[in-house]
Design a protein around this nucleic acid. Sequence first.
RNA 1: GCGGGUAUGGCGGAAUUGGCAGACGCGCCAGACUUAGGAUCUGGUGUUCUUAACGUGCAGGUUCAAGUCCUGUUACCCGCACCA
Length: 805
Amino acid sequence: MSKEKGYDFAAIEKKWQNYWDENKTFQAVMDHSKPKYYPLVEFPYPSGQGLHVGHPRSYTALDIVARKRRLEGYNVLYTMGWDAFGLPTENFAIKNHIHPEIVTKDNVAHFKAQLKSLGLSFDWDREINTTDPSYYKWTQWIFIQLFKKGLAYKAKMNVNWCTSCKCVLANEEVVNGVCERCGGEVVHKEKSQWMLKITEYAQRLIDDLSLVDYFDRIKATQINWIGRSTGAEVTFQTTLGDPLTVYTTRPDTLFGATYMVISPEHPLIEKWADSIQNMDEVRAYQAEAAKKSDFERTEVNKDKTGVKLDGVKGINPVNDREIPIFISDYVLVSYGTGAIMAVPAHDTRDYDFAKVFRLPIIEVVKGGDIEKEAFTDCETGIMVNSGFLDGLSVEEAKVKIEDWLEETKKGVRKVNYKLRDWVFARQRYWGEPIPIVQCEHCGYVPIPESELPLRLPEVESYEPTEDGQSPLANIESFVNTTCPKCGAPAKRETDTMPQWAGSSWYFLRYCDPHNDKELASKEALDYWMPVDWYNGGMEHTTLHLLYSRFWHKFLYDIGVVSCPEPYAKRTSHGMILGEDHVKMSKSRGNVVNPDQIVAEYGADTMRLYEMFMGDFQLSAPWNPRAVSGCKRFLDKVWNLQEKVVDGDSYRKELETPFHQTIKKVTEDIEALKFNTAIAAMMSLMNQIAAVGSINRAEYRDLLILLNPFVPHITEEIFERQGFMGPITSCSWVSYDEEKCKENTVEIAVQVNGKIKAKMTIPSDMESADVIAAAKRDEKVASEIEGKTVVKEIYVKGKLVNLVVK
RNA sequence: GCGGGUAUGGCGGAAUUGGCAGACGCGCCAGACUUAGGAUCUGGUGUUCUUAACGUGCAGGUUCAAGUCCUGUUACCCGCACCA
């Protein structure tokens, strides 16, 4: 039931949405006579809940950009699709005994209807769906190329295992020690997994950020995640004869190493098992560490624990001193060499450990108070107790010791990254099958490309198995095959790819979505790529955004694409919060349904409000009452139809406001400042209302200016007024810089920085004249009377300040 | 602990290079038109002891002039977190 009056938005919006569909208004066709523009928004996961009000914030923003660009004469590619593989669909399918394909189809239909109701200018002929075999054929194809280049490999390793999804997770998917998706407990498990060697691209993923225009915070987050550090690998001999290599960023403190620590999973422990006298204690500690969840293991301020290995010692290469070796879970097996030299005087963790185990603490950098705490400063300290390093600064010492290590072959300079290789397999049904066969004779063999796509088989049950295998493992007709190389009986890989696979290259498919010969034609890729402007959520910065940059770089290396980076520009929108200023969630009951807003106020109001509610980059709470303010504005625009007078140019009193507003809107859209662009148009509307009428030229331009924001109402009025339309085939309005200037300005007059008067002057008045006029002002004159003016300042068009004594 | 962000009226938020703090919208107050108003229109609306003073988380500083620059500090939000 609508309580709002005003124009009939429901009929108008339906009418124009049909018009755009029937006329394929937004169809993107390659046209070398026009400059191309490729704005991109993250395609959604079509969940059962339907569209969230957060989705349209991003979609509308780039829709505004896309519509403006078209009016400016660009050939625009703006598209939508579905990132439809994933666990929620699978879980829903299991629970309700419906095939995931059908669940996906229903969800997509619902999402699509919701998006269409918003009047977004997508080219729906290019719609893609990652679960479509004609799409995942190419996801599999890329995997095979990665395999051929040695970037996809299978390895037995310690992985994150979600106990609830019964599935492995990538490092990026473990959040606060629990599963990002379901919140289930994550434990470590030794498993043989397909991995992608993203680490091989770590340096380029950092370096090439200089080629792109991303928000600084996005770059910073990615650099931080990749986590580059420089230092040295140093090899310690041990009393059992096996060398033990450690990684350190502080080789300068080598003389201060008083013990060593290796991770509980370190392979040397097994090798040394017979020589270690307290092996029972060691095994007990290992078992304890393995049992701990990620959450427990990374708990902050946890007391240091460990076990000393009896029967083996390390030998410090710099002074041949024998030092004890411990195992402790504060050393991670997956970073560096899984072993460290401990310098308690200059590392807070080693310091804590040394205190617990009463180990010697030797100061080698002077400047702190190691009785109280570790001294970790690298800027000010001077080397002491360090033989040939004594007296040097930390920086000098680093260079000297690294040279020494390399000369004596006791160590090498080394760069390390926190980034890990990408665990690229999931033990679930609803994902892309990995197109690999395991043959007893030939090992892992990719299936021939002519057999792609390797389709998901029909199964009875999608339930993951208790033993950690994919449901596909139970389908004998799928598993049993022959080796593509030697023809012998062989078995298919039964794990599927993670959710992030399909989204790692989808922007390429949009360029040529129906191609069945290649993932996209070279011509289409060369024409449309790179994406000119990509907007999406901050939460994807270390997931999708990093993964897709990696895939794109790989495709660049093998000659599929011609640009080294996929996205020229990346921005992020803030979250839309509930009315109570916290994240919308079902349990809080603060979720706003976009359908309801569209039904009650119309898509144009919905679009306008989401763009007006605040700074696009920051989170903003939903205010149901403020929505009606946007509707009121549109009603005023509509009602202007009764106040139209003749006229083929701006009337004098509206000329400057029009030019100023056009300039502001034109610039603000580019700067993501939709809120102030809308404020400027509301302001212009108020000035028109004050005049009491609008002439045809003014109305026409106002409608074009508003069109990218509110496309339906503006097209309707345009048509009713008999302007040459539709607006989608018009040109963007232009402004004249000269005409943005006011003839007269009001300036403030200050005395000693305090405002005493205001005066209106011609904007081109000379400085001396302005100051003279200011002094003549009655109020000002009385303020300065009997005092000396020591300084006179005139800021053109702003203010006069007289400094008096 | 590390990295990033935010702080301005009753509310959402504006404010190039430092230059009239509070644009625009919501809400609120008053009036008009009305049988009616949760519609529409008009005017008003930072605070106070209103010839003026005080006001952008807090404390200092620089400057003729600071929301904006500098130093220190607090609170909240987001990401990472025993990465040697």
